[in-house]
Structure formats: structure tokens, C-alpha cells
Design a binder for these strands. Sequence first.
DNA 1: CCACGGATTGGCT
DNA 2: GCCAATCCGTGGA
Length: 201
Amino acid sequence: MKPQKKLPRKFYMRDVHIVAKELLGKFLVRRVGRKYLKGKIVEVEAYDGSVDKAAHTYGGKTKRNEIMFNEGGFLYVYFTYGMHFCSNVVTGKINEGKAVLLRAVEPLSMLDIMALNRFGKKNISTLELKNLTNGPAKICEAFGIMRSDNGTDLLGNEIFILNSQKLSENKIAASVRIGIKKSVDLPWRYYIKNNSFLSRK
DNA sequence: CCACGGATTGGCT
DNA sequence: GCCAATCCGTGGA
């Protein structure tokens, strides 16, 4: 088996829906000292500021959302509900304002560090394991992603995404997005069918 | 099992 | 001043 390689800039610079679906099954990695936290991406949502009222970029560029107007391959991290961070992968060309929200990953490596970040302890119950990374803010807490990670280049060595074989269409499902109040009918949530780390069925 | 509400900052109207 | 791309605990059926 060939070693996994980082996704190249060109991967991210395509249509937001293509990138969203192809991110499923890829590996999110964050460096912590000499260790690497790793999880398989299993659930995402597409946001497109050109047509989508739920996208942070719908109303144009602001200080908060400016990273989302970068070219593809940067991390857009935002703070919400006064206590949570969520992370997005920016897609497309410069000034498009499109990104993919990471909603759930399946934890694969350094679970004890993730457990410490999430629950303040290394040994966790099966319920806590299930709740480790099955939500957008849970991913950020487990992976230690916060405000200072906004704008991180995913082609760098701190936070990046490793390639894997493209999933066949029949393993992917789509639904409406979760937790929004605008553009609620767009079926832009994509996830791996039957994965046990989804935030919802 | 499900529904509901509190937490708590800060962006934008 | 309003309210958010969330999470978690509580309380009732």
C-alpha cells in the first residue's frame, strides 16, 4: 500500500459539492508536538455564499468570514453559541466564498489525546467514545482546533487532509443540513451511509 | 425514547 | 438588542 499523501491544492479548488462528497473517507490530521491526531471524515455540509442564505459569506466579505473567500485548501474556523468552534474546508477559486463544514469524523489515532481534550480524561466509556467526534464542535474540541487555527493552510504541516481511495456513490447519502434556519431545503449535507460516528441518521 | 432549555461570546442589524 | 452552521443535562412518558 502506498503511503497516504496530502490532498493537493487542485483538489480543493473545484466545485464545493464535488469537494464535499470527495472529502468523505479522507483523513483529517492535526499535529500535536510529535504526535498526529487522525480521523476519517464521515459527514460534511456544503455552503455556497453565491446562492445560499445560510452561508456566512452570503452577505459579502467581513472580518469574520474573510478566510472563506480564500482559494481552496484553507481552514475557516468560526466561533458560535458563545462557546463552540466549528471548522470548514474552503473550496473553489479566490473570492468565491464557498466551504465545506466538517460535521463528523471517525476517530482513528491518538484517541487518548482526543478523550483528554473532550472529557478531561484518557479512559472513556463506550458512550463517550461514540460522542468523541460526532459533531462539528466536537471535532474541534477533540482535535484542539480553535480561533488561532482560522486561516491554516491545509497544505502545511499543522492541520492537513490525507488522500484515500474515492468512495463509490452508493456509499454516500445526502440530506438537508442541520441546525440552520435559512435555505433549509437545500440537500447539501453529505455523509457515509451507516457509519456509526454520524451526528445524526 | 424524546423535547426542551440553558450556557455564554461576539457579529451584525 | 437579537440570535447563532452546538452540545449537554434534565425531566417526563
